[in-house]
Structures are given as C-alpha cells and as structure tokens.
C-alpha cells in the first residue's frame, strides 16, 4: 500500500458516495447511465470472486465487499426506487460492443487459464471501458448536473492515482502487472476530454456544457 493507491481507493469510495448522494437528494437518477452502473456490478462480481479463495488484508476484504454491495444498491435505486426518473431512451450505447471484445481480450491476455484468472482479466478489461455508456450519454445530452460531474471527476481521479501507484510499485517492489497497467492507461485516457471541460468550466463555477 502506498499513498497513491490509498488516495485512489478513497477517491473511488468518494465517487460512490457522491453518486448515491446525488440520486437520493435529488430523488432522481437523471443523467446517470444504468448501463455503466450495471457494468460496474459485473466488474466487481467477476473480479472479487477471490474473496472466497485468497485473503489479502482486512482493508482489501472490506473494500471488495463495499464495492459489490454499493454497486448493487445503486442498481436497486435506479431500477426500483427511482425507476420513473431513469430514461433508457438516451442510454443507448450497445453493450455487446464492449462485453464481446473484453471476453476475447481476456481469453488472449491473462495470468492463467482457470475461471478465476479469466474472470479477473475480463473484469480488468471491462472496467477500462465501463464508463463509455455514461460518457456517451453525456455527449448526447451535451450537459450534466454539477453533482454528476463531481462523481465522474472522483472516479477519474481514482484511475489517475493508480498510475503513480504502479510507477511507485515498480521502483519499490519491482512489481509490474502489464494487464492492469495497459487497461488502466486506456481507462484513464477516456477521461481526458471530460477532465478538460471539468477543469475549464465546472471548477470555474460554470455549468458543464459541451460545445454544440
């Protein structure tokens, strides 16, 4: 554990709390992609199957349980409690374009041909693109509530912080995980456009609006 990873994880936790806060206080999941949230549940469930097989630390176990539970809770909020506020007609990204290639990539790049390793690898690739339906929706509507942009910023910061974490681990432990690093760089790259608008508009007190 190093500070980059720790603050990355904290940022990830923060993003989830911000999202739950947004949905429950506005009593609406408007502007949130159900598809992205469903992908996160898939990511956490397929990756954290090792909860039953390998113990890393109490921190690790608690975080894994939290990520699975909170992502399922968010789906519940969107699908049951605030269902009328969820508009599927603008959440139109085709999931098969994401899941299909991730299955193929996991079959090619993995650390072992067994179900746990294949699912782990799949979850890493899937996480790297899981935000796309959300970003696509943002692009389509051209604007976002400020709280939603804070959610995305916290999620992007979590990914960004994992990069110095890997650099640090390389020098301090000689540890390199090529699958995580490659997928992580792609994932962080997807946020660059968003961050540009976030820094130049939202943090200057303006509304998040994309140029027409």
């Amino acid at each position: 554990m190093n500070i980059f990873r720790f603050f990355g994880d904290l940022s990830h936790l923060a993003s989830i709390f911000i999202l739950i806060h947004k949905i429950t206080t506005t009593r609406s999941c408007r502007g949130i992609s159900f598809k992205t949230q469903a992908l996160y549940v898939t990511v956490f469930v397929t990756r954290y199957l090792d909860l039953f097989t390998s113990y890393v630390s109490l921190y690790n176990t608690v975080m894994k349980i939290f990520f699975i539970a909170s992502s399922c809770y968010i789906l519940y909020l969107m699908r049951v409690r605030y269902r009328p506020t969820n508009d599927p007609s603008i959440d139109t990204f085709r999931l098969e374009y994401l899941v299909g290639p991730c299955v193929v990539l996991a079959l090619i790049f993995n650390y072992g041909y067994n179900p746990t390793e294949l699912l782990w690898s799949f979850s890493i690739f899937l996480e790297s693109v899981a935000i796309l339906p959300q970003l696509f929706m943002l692009q389509r509507t051209g604007e976002a509530e400020t709280i939603t942009t804070h959610y995305l910023a916290a999620l992007g910061a979590y990914r960004a912080l994992y990069i110095p974490n890997w650099i640090y681990r390389y020098f301090s432990e000689g540890y390199v995980d090529p699958i995580s690093v490659t997928a992580g760089l792609v994932q962080t790259g997807l946020y660059l456009d968003f961050f540009y608008v976030y820094f130049t508009k939202v943090l200057q007190g303006q509304k998040f609006e994309l140029p027409a």
């Binding site: 990756r47 090792d50 650390y111 782990w120 994992y162 390199v176 995980d177």
Partner: peptide
C-alpha cells in the same frame, strides 16, 4: 507473475 501472489489491488 502478478497472479502468483494473488491480485492485491482493488
């Protein structure tokens, strides 16, 4: 290999 020690990152 990363998986020998398990995947310790979240």
């Amino acid at each position: 290999r990363p998986s020998d020690s398990g995947h310790d990152e979240l």
